[in-house]
Design a protein around this nucleic acid. Structure first.
Length: 425
RNA sequence: GUGGAUGUAGCUCAGUUGGUUAGAGCGCUAGGUUGUGGCCCUGGAGGCCGUGGGUUCGAGUCCCAUCAUCCACCCCA
């Protein structure tokens, strides 16, 4: 019981899986550049008040899931539970609006929430996301969704579809909330205990309650008000325009008028992507508009839209796809040297091969020829290069063809250089 | 915070109604092969059976507690 192990809800990403992460990160980076988004890196921890004010005091995240502690100056510090708040804070702090609008930013990194771990949920998890700040146009809503769609495309994630809804601005939202509560009054006796409580605290969340009885009572009722009917003319036009843009961008989506999102700062468009076979935590990506957040945090009154994607969940979903088999095969050389007198020559060769950009490795344990050959095979080397006692001579074995030739080292080196060039073409 | 399941070798797991020295496959390692990987064969290393207590002549096995992991609720990425 004295064994030290990783903190509950955290895990190590070991060789074998880490390549998968690198592939995903690479695709994300390239796509962001393609879409004109700039990376922003903010601290892992922030003043606690930032999250309380942006995410909402009454949300579960702020209420019970944050890693909060006092530092030596007795300031309350919190490990970031999500990315948007910090990006907005940085945006305001550095007056990024002065660099021209809209500002299109993206981020990637670890987030922390103190929840009970389960499939697709860790206490330290990773997200990438975008925040596009400074335009109310549904074109921008469409762009961030199209961007995410492009990432999924490149990763080969199939069977995907984005759910979308509009909560409307404050006016629409208020009207809808009132209509919803009076509807809920009529079905109150059919609601689960949780939902009765939520009716006064956060009635919108009742719409995605998973208790079957609740679902029946709500979603099978003719009288359930739809958010869409309570949108102001402007909100409704924006939403319909957005759907048109998505159509022309070939994004697969469906309107889910019961979709609401948990964070307080969302206004207008909300969307998320769920993926089957991920267990209970099946939302890979979630986002929406947050037109009031900048102002609420003391910044300029600018509208914004963004999303966040859970990388662990994305990778879980990718586990069944071809992307997983896409292991990067580079040509590699394994140097074999059994004679102690040849060690310095072996080391020299190793460095010369590496210096022309070819991955190479060798034995460091003084193993037998057979064992080194085996190591070369396991390493995935295209060539095993045996250092011969004669000056400057090596035997090169093509591991795949199992053919072997003896030649001067320089000849082998130029062979590597040539194939290197050919592959780069 | 609440429920359920599971903890035996690096990994995946056997282990009978409680009975000698706890096993297999894979992996690792050495050899069979006087320098040569994969296939085959032979050997070796590697275990406080999660931890602590209890019952018993005797516990991997039964009981209690505890810790950890997984899954689900809640909520979210």
């Amino acid at each position: 019981m004295n064994k030290i192990q990783a903190i509950k809800g955290t895990n190590d990403i070991l060789p074998g899986l880490v390549e998968m992460w690198q592939n995903v990160e690479e695709v994300v980076r390239k796509t962001m550049i393609l879409y004109g988004y700039s990376e922003i890196r903010t601290p892992i921890f922030e003043e606690t008040g930032l999250f309380a004010r942006s995410i909402g005091e009454d949300t579960d995240i702020v209420g019970k899931e944050m890693y909060t502690f006092n530092d030596m100056g007795n300031r309350s510090i919190t490990l970031r539970p999500e990315g948007t708040a910090a990006v907005v804070r940085a945006f305001i702090e550095h007056s990024l609006d002065q660099k021209g609008l809209p500002q299109k930013l993206w981020y990637m990194g670890p987030m922390f929430r103190q929840e009970r771990p389960q499939k697709g949920r860790q206490r330290q998890f990773h997200q990438f996301g975008v925040e596009a700040i400074g335009s109310p146009s549904p074109m921008l809503d469409a762009e961030v969704m199209i961007l995410f769609d492009a990432v999924c495309d490149k990763l080969g994630l199939d069977n995907r579809s984005i759910s979308i809804n509009s909560l409307g601005g404050t006016a629409s939202r208020k009207a809808y909330r009132e209509a919803l509560v009076s509807f809920l009054d009529t079905v109150e006796n059919q609601l689960c205990e949780n939902c009765r409580r939520r009716k006064s605290t956060n009635p919108l969340r009742i719409l995605d309650c998973k208790v079957p009885g609740c679902r029946d009572a709500i979603h099978h009722s003719e009288d359930l008000p739809h958010t869409i009917d309570y949108l102001t003319e402007e909100d409704r036009n924006n939403f319909e325009t957005l759907l048109k843009f998505l159509d022309s961008g070939n994004v697969t989506y469906y309107c889910d008028y019961s979709l609401v999102r948990g964070l307080d700062y969302y206004t207008g468009t909300v969307f998320e992507m769920q993926y089957t076979d991920l267990g209970a935590q099946n939302a890979i990506m979630g986002g929406g508009r947050y037109d009031r957040l900048l102002y609420a945090l003391g910044g300029p009154d600018l509208p914004a839209v963004g999303f966040a994607c859970g990388i662990e969940r994305l990778i879980l979903a990718l586990q069944n796809t071809k992307f997983m088999e896409n292991t990067v095969k580079q040509k590699q050389v394994y140097i074999i040297h059994t004679d102690g007198n040849l060690h310095s020559r072996a080391l020299q060769y190793l460095q010369r091969i590496r210096s022309i950009g070819v991955a190479a490795d060798m034995d460091f344990l003084g193993k037998s020829m057979k064992a080194q050959m085996k190591a070369a095979s396991r390493y995935g080397a295209s060539f095993a290069m045996i250092v011969e006692p004669d000056d400057e001579t090596v035997s090169v074995k093509d591991m795949e063809k199992s053919e072997q030739k003896t030649m001067p080292f320089n000849a082998f080196l130029s062979l590597l250089e040539k194939t290197n060039r050919d592959l780069n073409l």
